[in-house]
């Protein structure tokens, strides 16, 4: 069962994603901010990270850079309320992005694609 780490400072989003993604057959763990995120990834070894861009005290795009530098091929999906983040060059290091919504169809589609992505070893 693929393990997904949801990093978001809004509790209702963490709950929504957890519930829906567990129902879709994923194991879900959560973090409420970017504190010691790299250590958490190292320990928990998730197959994919869903990362909020704007968190109190943390910039998701900076966290994305750190993740990409340390875990080169770990899939990361940016989750955001607004799509203005695309103006920031750092966003190209994400596998995909989704605009936050109560309908998770798009998010589930992107998760499936990210986990299906295959490059020869």
């Amino acid at each position: 069962m693929p393990k997904i780490l949801v990093v978001d400072d809004e509790e209702h989003i963490r709950l929504l994603y957890s519930e829906e993604l567990k129902e879709a057959g994923y194991e879900v763990i959560t973090a409420e901010n970017g504190y010691k995120l790299l250590e958490r990834i190292e320990e928990e070894k998730p197959d994919l990270v869903i990362l909020d861009i704007k968190m109190v005290d943390y910039n998701g795009l900076d966290l994305l850079q750190d993740i990409r530098n340390q875990f080169y091929d770990l899939p990361v999906i940016l989750s955001t309320a607004y799509d203005t983040f695309k103006e920031d060059m750092k966003s190209i290091a994400a596998d995909f992005y989704v605009v936050k919504s109560f309908d998770l169809t798009e998010l589930k589609k992107k998760i499936a694609m990210a986990l299906e992505t295959r490059l020869p070893g």
Binding site: Q65, P75, K90, A93, D95, R118, L119
Partner: peptide
């Protein structure tokens, strides 16, 4: 033999940000 195995695509890391 390499590219037939590739499915979808992945980003790269970024420097100079």
């Amino acid at each position: 033999d390499y590219w037939v195995q590739v499915k979808w695509s992945k980003p790269t890391a970024l420097s100079g940000t």
